[in-house]
Design a protein around this nucleic acid. Structure first.
Length: 233
DNA sequence: GCGACAG
DNA sequence: ATCTTGTCGC
């Protein structure tokens, strides 16, 4: 399935430009090159919560900002809107990005880096939601996914915590599997925007605090759920 | 042709 | 993606 085959009414304004811009920035290596500030002071986590049995299909997006030193949430913002684009594997960004961008716009404090719940360039068109958000906001992002979309592990991932293994697709390493917690299934860490894969993995590791998910994404998930339940559902 | 398929 | 207590394993 191609973006051209998508009904116009599903797309938000600028949808097609994002795909074009991503291809351009990939060629320029803007996507995969570290362009982080000297001191990363604030990190954001983004996630969306929704209820598949909700006939109105409301999407609840939350962006939390944590202090890089303490990994404590310092501020957050949320936004909700009706889903215009259904969930289709490979097109998650088109469904969730509008709500996430709106939540981000309401933040009083802008982060230096964003961890997004989902894939980065480990995607059929290298346009996973993390890269999608990175291109839209022009901020470094890392994709933190919980399962594989495309590709195959280079081998058998060691059971020990902290073990990593490349995720291969068409002879290329598109992401790294990371056993973030002892007996848990690995996370898939990928370049989102303006960051190299080794850097992304190193940073994600530093944000782990005994849970499978790194703090930014974990807190975003909790906050998005709380937001949805508060807006009664 | 068949299976796989982020959240 | 969400619902939901107890329960099995390290």
């Amino acid at each position: 399935m191609q973006i051209n085959a998508i009904p116009r009414e599903w797309l938000y304004p600028g949808s097609l430009e994002v795909a074009t811009k991503l291809q351009l920035q990939l060629a320029q290596q803007v996507i995969t090159t570290d362009q982080l500030p000297d001191n990363i002071q604030y990190i954001a986590g983004m996630d969306v919560s929704s209820n598949w049995r909700d006939p109105k299909q409301i999407i609840y997006a939350t962006c939390v900002v944590l202090d890089a030193k303490t990994l404590r949430v310092v501020t957050s913002a949320s936004a909700h809107m009706q889903q215009k684009f259904p969930y289709i594997p490979g097109f998650l960004g088109f469904r969730e990005a509008p709500a996430l961008v709106e939540a981000f716009a309401q933040l009083s404090l802008k982060p230096d880096l964003i961890l997004v719940d989902g894939h980065g360039i480990s995607h059929p068109r290298k346009l996973g939601i993390a890269s999608h958000i990175g291109v839209l906001l022009d901020i470094p992002t890392i994709g933190v996914a919980k399962s594989i979309l495309i590709g195959k592990p280079a081998g058998t991932l060691d059971l020990a915590a902290d073990a990593t293994m490349p995720l291969l697709w068409q002879e290329q390493t598109i992401a790294m599997l990371l056993r973030s917690k002892n007996r848990c299934n690995p996370l898939i860490i990928a370049t989102g925007h303006k960051i190299a894969l080794p850097t992304a993995v190193k940073l994600v590791k530093s944000y782990l605090r005994g849970y499978r998910l790194p703090e930014p994404t974990r807190q975003a998930h909790l906050a998005a759920n709380a937001y949805r339940r508060k807006l009664h559902d």
